[in-house]
Design a protein around this nucleic acid. Structure first.
Lengths: 333, 333
DNA sequence: ATGAAAGCGCTAACAC
DNA sequence: GTGTTAGCGCTTTCAT
């Protein structure tokens, strides 16, 4: 910066003003500085700048595993929305298998960068872990249903998603249904979906086989066996990636979908879901991203709103080929 | 930090040393400082720290549209590799429809953050646009075939990918083939794949219909029409997302795959690609991520290697149900 | 409209 | 082992 000032024959102050595009600078000076900066390939040191000014239009994003298309899309959409709002988004991902420890470290890193706000789009971080930072900077949860009422959140209405799917399956006549339920700690949204499906189905008088899953492929043999034995006519998976695993296993076992057994998932983001004919709920990712960023912009603004943001967005049922009407011919079902 | 020092009854220097985990500090002091920091919820200001120390173990990533599963996976894998190498990765995405302008702005932002290195995983930035920064910080291209010999790159061997696919299709007996070719500016990898497919097929004596694509769905009606008219028995798409578009259009037109027409793509990352039976080449994403980060670690190390890194990684052909042997019964084919 | 000076929060020699 | 002193590169009053 010193060099640019010298090259342009002005003081560092003027260079600063020009680069920030603020304050009073003559057209002449402004031009000379720009020219000098270009010539020298000068780029403002953001860290020094933010350090000196104290402020920052940068917000941090903690994301869960972008390899999952639903999170990848969320990432892209958040970035778009942030850009449109004049915010810079810097992000760190956590692989799905990294429970807790690494996530909190990343969280610290982001806070350490003195970002103006934090968007947490991974269920792996608990509300308790966010608590210490809440006073320091605005935090918004995106996607995961938030349990703590003290933390801002725009989330998918997973209860409703699960309900829509359960009702759809039940309305096709299925009465004996297997539901894959993950552990709360593994994936909170999937956990909520699974348990909700179970209760909705039971309310409607269905016989539910609740099968718990831990790893990626765990529990699948179990449901396939149930289907093969004719004990269930439908299998509900808590997400589309898991629905794929089920479909694969079913195919390997020689069972036809939906003739022998119906299958459903949840997400609706996967490219090719339509071609596969997946039955699912399409998450309102784009809207979630927009609303999250919009609230964040308010929160880091001059007059932050006082209340706690808490929104739930509804998904859209996508009936597919994988769920068919109950065939009354088979086994005990 | 001042507060922490006071709380622990030591100087700021000691606090610094403890937080950095370096230098000589007594067990006693270390403990007291940690306790004080925890009590006050103190997190080191990364910006001030890096500003003062000059160095940074943070590297910037410019990524193309994580909504594309291939880039989403790359993102995750890069992050994993970086973490393993003790590097922090901060990233910015660019949506696929943002050509040039925004990308360069993001690039500036990253450079402005004084990251130690830059990984560019988007074809949208040209070698020329990277040039000005090359002297300042190490830059690595990841994925895109690099044309400039001056820039470090670990890339997919798109020529080979295309060749593998073309040979596979030709060996199934197809002689009249439509190839979708994107414009260079839209997607450089797809452009390379397309043109390579064309030349490989022609070398093998096939009649090639080269159909150019601009938008996401552009050109597809054309190839479907060719297939419907029996003028081609196979359609080669330059990527799996595009292969899906073709499959959708074919289904809508009532054409069966592969009985009426064979279809191929390239990527192999899409979850569910196997269930769909896509014929494709699986990109070595994981290896690319590892090698890119490994080279980057060297480049920002104490004794950076002198030569220019230039590696090409081979993909793996995944024969699927979408490509079948030529059926000799139809039309002019 | 422009410049001088005083930090922003931290680290790195260098003494003690 | 621990504290002291100088900055890192910038922004921001406050004069001029």
């Amino acid at each position: 910066m010193e060099d640019v000032a010298a090259e342009a024959g002005v003081s560092r102050t003027s260079v600063s003003r020009v680069m920030l595009g603020q304050g009073k600078v003559s057209e002449e000076t402004r031009h000379r500085v720009r020219a000098a900066a270009d010539r020298l390939g000068y780029v403002t040191n953001v860290m020094a700048s933010e350090l000196a000014s104290g402020g920052s239009r940068t917000i941090g994003l903690l994301l869960r595993d972008a390899a999952n298309p639903a999170y990848g899309l969320l990432f892209t959409e958040l970035q778009k929305a942030a850009h449109a709002a004049g915010l810079t988004l810097i992000s760190m991902t956590i692989s799905a298998d990294d429970r807790g420890r690494g996530q909190v470290a990343s969280l610290h890193r982001l806070v350490g960068m003195r970002v103006a706000g934090l968007i947490v789009a991974t269920g792996g971080v608990t509300s308790g872990q966010l608590e210490p930072f809440r006073a320091r900077i605005p935090i918004m949860r995106a996607g995961r249903p938030e349990t703590s009422a003290a933390i801002h959140a725009v989330s998918y209405d997973e209860e409703d998603n699960a309900r829509q799917l359960a009702v759809h399956v039940a309305e096709q006549g299925h009465r004996h249904i297997a539901v894959l339920v993950t552990e709360e700690i593994e994936s909170y949204p999937e956990f909520v979906r699974g348990t909700t499906m179970v209760s909705v189905l039971e309310e409607r008088g269905c016989t539910v086989r609740r099968v718990s899953v831990r790893g990626a492929g765990d529990g699948v043999e179990k449901v396939v066996a149930l289907a093969a034995a004719g004990e269930v006519s439908a299998i509900m998976a808590p997400s589309d990636p898991r629905q794929l695993v089920v479909l694969r296993a079913l195919a390997a076992a020689g069972l036809r979908v939906p003739e022998d057994v119906s299958v459903s998932g949840c997400d609706g983001i996967m490219p090719g879901a339509d071609l596969l004919g997946l039955t699912t709920v399409r998450l309102p990712v784009e809207e979630l991203a927009r609303r999250t960023v919009s609230h964040m912009a308010d929160l880091i603004g001059d007059e932050p709103p006082s209340g706690v943001v808490s929104e739930r967005l509804l998904g859209t049922l996508v009936p597919g080929r994988t769920v068919g009407p109950l065939a009354r011919a088979r086994g005990s079902v």
